[in-house]
Design a protein around this nucleic acid. Structure first.
Lengths: 151, 151
DNA sequence: CTAAGTGCAAAAATTTTGCAAACTA
DNA sequence: TAGTTTGCAAAATTTTTGCACTTAG
């Protein structure tokens, strides 16, 4: 919905960050970032590189790696769960919080937001005299397919 | 404190798991597991392998990898954080599960267990077609003292 | 123009695999 | 004994690096 604004946001933030570090705002960097932010979910470097190459021929793999590191350093992306052999990233949008369910067998990741849980968390936290600022919830288990395949 | 009992617990659980899968309870497996459970924190494969080799010469690296996969499959360990190039693991003690509230200002950590939250987690997970194996919940905020000091 | 960034391919680092020998049940 | 597991080293994967060439500022 607020796609245009969101785009403007990362572009501006990334540019600022690069400039502040005395770096150059180059086309390859912006292209990789653009592809990354256009992808839903938690793309692995693998999928990301494939998509980048598909949309922009001639961008080297090393640039994809280097740009993702840049995005992480700038706080626009974070490295996430693991277990499938390559790095996965998630765009960081502080506005839209969500938690994760992760299949420990195939690595599938589901995002969810459960108000009831958030509320209980607030309660527990308050009960311990704390003021809740943020949280992180990860549930590990087996997804439907892997459960079936298990037998 | 309950070290002896805890030891007995993973040993029994691991043995059960291996047997159930028609596998063999071998010395190398038990040795790797023993070293792993004796290490605090989130040892990386790297440190783990080093420690294993230090305490038991002649155990191959592949066995360390294979045993850690076994521990993960059996639910006695989970793969954790990333970002340093190799896999990290955390021992999971199903009996003594607890979540954390962490003060982002002074670093104080409170452990708590909230059945209602656990239940809701089960529900969400099931609703997404998953079977929950474990989870991790961390709440960040400010503790009472830091709140007072804040003004 | 100068310093930073890029692409490529080679190197490094991490994890998995094949197989004969050793071992568990 | 039959079938699993091991250790080793080789293979496969994933990530980083070196370097000549381009490009942003």
């Amino acid at each position: 919905m607020a796609d245009v604004k969101a785009t403007a946001r990362w572009k501006r933030r990334l540019t600022e960050y690069i400039r502040a570090a005395g770096g150059h705002v180059t086309a390859p960097r912006m292209r990789v970032a653009e592809v990354f932010f256009s992808m839903a979910g938690h793309p692995g470097i693998e999928e990301l590189a494939t998509e980048v190459h598909k949309r922009h021929k001639g961008i080297g793999n090393a640039t994809v790696y280097r740009t993702m590191r840049l995005l992480c350093d700038s706080g626009l992306a974070v490295m996430r769960e693991f277990g499938d052999g390559f790095a996965r990233y998630e765009a960081r949008n502080p506005e839209a919080h969500h938690d994760h369910i992760i299949c420990t067998h195939c690595g599938k990741i589901i995002e969810f937001g459960e108000d009831a849980i958030e509320e209980l968390q607030e309660n527990v936290t308050r009960r311990h005299g704390f003021l809740m600022k943020s949280h992180r919830l990860e549930i590990y288990g087996l997804c439907g397919e892997c459960l079936k395949a298990e037998r």
